[in-house]
Design a protein around this nucleic acid. Structure first.
Length: 237
DNA sequence: AAGTGTGTCAACCGCATAAAG
DNA sequence: CCTTTATGCGGTTGACACACT
């Protein structure tokens, strides 16, 4: 990539240093947000969406670069057991890591650690299959703002209710929403009810059937259920 | 040294939701 | 309400670097 995308107005592909600089200059002055205005203000030939992604996944000083630690690996594996492929939620509990980083790391490193995959994705096969061999961690990358890996990002992104948009029947939707409340610690959540009723992880549109997961596997039966925030769960993982 | 295969990860795509008008 | 715009998410792709032959 890195070349013009045929239709000229907006570039695609890897960002150049100059583009990074333009975007950073703009964000330093105006702050992040209103992404669609950035191309107009800066002359950047990128979609606002692309600017947002570049900032969130790479330029933001909150983004930690470099290898994932054992602790991070362990945390991600546990959270993935609990949450499935809800990368933004998982990333929210791994300081300094973005959903994209977590997703990539999972697909390339952690999946095989669980012993679930022993195959690789053929170039011709668009499906996410995963590879086998152990391989070593790779390099640290240059960070245009902060090479020292500083900045802990302890964000907890709002949890979307997209799960309710699935073809699940009403009862299942109810369960899912209740579980959502439990996970996110929403005000007036039905988490306790859900927790009582479901010692076993319910089938979710987001989780394949083989990911049904007993909460007890992560020691949640020992959790004191006064508050249902993910923060609490996280501490027990 | 050159050609080929493979792994990694940045970035794109499509879709959904939220917010604004 | 309805429509449009902005933002966010997860899945997927493809460029690039490196390993292997």
């Amino acid at each position: 990539m890195g070349a013009e995308a045929g239709e000229s107005l907006h570039r695609k592909g890897l960002w150049t240093e100059e583009e990074d600089r333009l975007l950073l200059d703009h964000i330093r002055v105006h702050g992040p947000g209103r992404w669609n205005r950035i191309p107009k203000f800066t002359g950047l030939r990128r979609h606002g969406k692309s600017c947002r992604l570049r900032w969130l996944n790479y330029l933001s000083p909150a983004v930690k670069r470099g290898k994932f630690s054992e602790e991070e690996d362990d945390l991600i594996v546990r959270l993935h057991k609990l949450l499935g492929n809800r990368w933004s939620l998982i990333a929210g509990r791994v300081p300094g890591r973005t959903d994209n980083q977590v997703k990539n790391h999972w697909n390339t490193h952690l999946f095989k650690k669980l012993g679930t995959g022993n195959f690789k994705r053929p170039r011709s096969d668009p499906k996410p299959e995963y590879r086998a061999q152990e391989e070593q961690e790779t390099t640290d990358h240059h960070h245009p703002i902060n090479d020292s890996n500083a900045g802990n990002c302890d964000r907890l992104p709002p949890c979307r209710s997209t799960m309710s948009n699935t073809s699940a029947d009403d009862a299942e939707v109810g369960d899912v929403l209740m579980r959502e409340n439990f996970l996110t610690g929403s005000e007036g959540s039905d988490g306790e009810e859900w927790m009582r009723d479901h010692r076993v992880w319910l089938g979710s549109p987001m989780l394949s059937s083989d990911r049904y997961f007993e909460l007890s596997n992560v020691g949640l039966e020992d959790l004191v259920i006064d508050s249902y925030s993910l923060d609490q769960m996280w501490r027990h993982l």
